[in-house]
Nucleic acid binder design. Structure first.
Length: 422
RNA sequence: GGAGAGGUGGCUGAGUGGUCGAAAGCAGCGCUUUGCUAAAGCGCCGUGGGUGUAAAAGCCCACCGGGGGUUCGAAUCCCCCCCUCUCCGCCA
């Protein structure tokens, strides 16, 4: 959510910033419902004010006195007016709420112009792609792949996109998660194991709701299966005021992630590229607004280091205005090179949300100098998503003998130096 | 799942229809006293919104778990929901 005062007082500034995101936003409609709401609010408050004054006067009048009875009669009219107006006010309030929730976050000034993913800026590239085998194959074509990653049985038991991981397949997933969490903890993040279902209020605070319910699995309660640990993690401090001295707060969490992802097709959904359920470790920070862009860079660095340790070539994309996302002010994507598919796979998305989520979630800190609550900035990114890292690992490290070499830092977690499909 | 008790400000905890945004205490902040510390005394000390302003101040409204209702008037009475605790049942 944006600052309502900013929208009212500098609508042109807001309009210009939103244009950069290339989303169709009717700011005038938002301003109109806001103005209507404020008019009604003032009318109701005026009525309530007279009601209150009468109430105070009546308190020192004898109950049965003629003056008292006259007042009651007089106030009955006011009371019915208030009730009528309050219905309208409630309606107006809801309209404002919906309108405000529909506005995307403003992109940061450093976000490049652009409409499509092709216009994202390659910010950095690490590792040597050329040295990887020219004969690498997509991971789903590796002999024995389906033994370790059993999509057929997953589809039978649950549905497409819910594979079984078997033997070394299960073990490599566990090794990666353990490695990621240990490294993240070393980098200063406190490990958390959150609930994997959230309520509507939580999903609204982080920006999944309203409008994006089609991307989440919903239970009959209703609760939502988390699409990322970001959701429960961010909401940890919802409706709370923390001390400024507690900032910045660093947390990491592993959860399975559930995404319905309707509408994807082709090579995007082959093998481990895109699943309805996958494992991911998320990094999350609550920070002082003044430091949030430094903290974003640091978080991205923490995610990058994981890829470096796994010896995976990757690039960092700075997302252009059109690809930043609804709730983000600035976003970097980390993509690993998958030698078999000969393409980049997104394994982490590191974003600064500034106060957008904090305002929805009412997460604030008490400023030391003024003593007043202020909104924190939230920052998050994957550290990292398992299946695509795994896909790149399988494709890049496949040996002529059909085994996959395990990168040195992972060996102690995996328990051996090669993953075997037999 | 069943029965009972309860949800009030950062915390503890009064308040059962009117002048209550809410006593008191603790914590916090400021001042006084003091060689320092401690103690004591005095004062300040919730959040959100509207309006106003260069920014403030000020003024107004709302908020006593959430939502609805009764009433001229609700923290207080009624209904629904959520949560916590105790006991019982079930269970990894």
């Amino acid at each position: 959510m944006l600052d309502p005062k900013l929208i009212r007082e500098t609508p042109e500034l807001v309009r210009a910033a939103l244009a950069k995101k290339h989303l169709s936003v009717d700011l005038d409609a938002v301003l109109a419902v806001d103005a209507a709401w404020r008019t009604l609010l003032q009318e109701v408050e005026l009525l309530r004010s007279t009601q209150k004054a009468a109430n105070t006067a009546m308190a020192c009048l004898p109950k049965g006195s003629p003056e008292f009875i006259a007042k009651v009669q007089e106030m009955k009219a006011v009371s019915s007016q208030v009730k009528e107006k309050e219905v309208q006010l409630k309606d107006a309030e809801e309209k404002v709420r919906v309108a405000m929730l529909s506005l995307p976050n403003l992109p940061h000034g450093s976000v490049p112009e652009g409409r499509t993913p092709e216009e994202n800026v390659t910010f950095a590239t690490q590792g040597d792609i050329a040295s990887l085998s020219k004969h690498a194959v997509p991971h789903w074509e590796i002999a024995g792949f389906e033994r370790l990653f059993d999509f057929a049985r997953g589809a039978k038991v649950t549905g497409a996109g819910f594979p079984f991981y078997v033997g070394d397949g299960a073990r490599i997933v566990r090794a990666l998660l353990q490695f990621f969490l240990d490294e993240d903890v070393k980098a200063g993040y406190t490990e958390v194991s959150p609930p994997i279902f959230v309520n509507a209020a939580s999903a609204t605070a982080t920006g999944q709701l309203p409008d994006k319910e089609g991307q989440m699995y919903e239970t009959s309660d209703p609760l939502y299966a988390v699409p990322t640990a970001e959701v429960p993690l961010t909401n940890f401090f919802r409706d709370e005021i923390v001390e400024e001295s507690m900032l910045p707060i660093y947390r990491c969490a592993y959860t399975p992630c559930f995404r319905r992802e309707a509408g994807s097709y082709g090579k995007d959904v082959r093998g481990l590229n895109r699943l309805h359920q996958f494992d991911k470790v998320e990094l999350l920070k609550w920070v002082h607004p003044a430091t949030s862009y430094d903290e974003l860079d640091k978080l991205r660095g923490d995610a990058e280091r994981l890829l470096q340790k796994l010896e995976l070539p990757y690039r960092v994309l700075l997302m252009c205005g059109g690809d930043v996302g609804f709730a983000q002010a600035k976003k970097y994507d980390l993509e690993v090179w998958a030698a078999g598919q000969k393409r980049w796979l997104e394994v982490s998305s590191c974003s600064n949300f500034e106060a957008f989520q904090a305002r929805r979630a009412q997460i604030r800190f008490r400023a030391k100098d003024t003593g007043k609550p202020e909104l924190v900035h939230t920052i998050n990114g994957s550290g990292l998503a398992v299946p695509r890292v795994l896909a790149a690992l399988l494709e890049n490290n496949l040996q002529p003998d059909g085994r996959v070499r395990i990168p040195a830092p992972l060996v102690s977690y995996f328990g051996k130096e090669y993953l075997s499909f037999t």
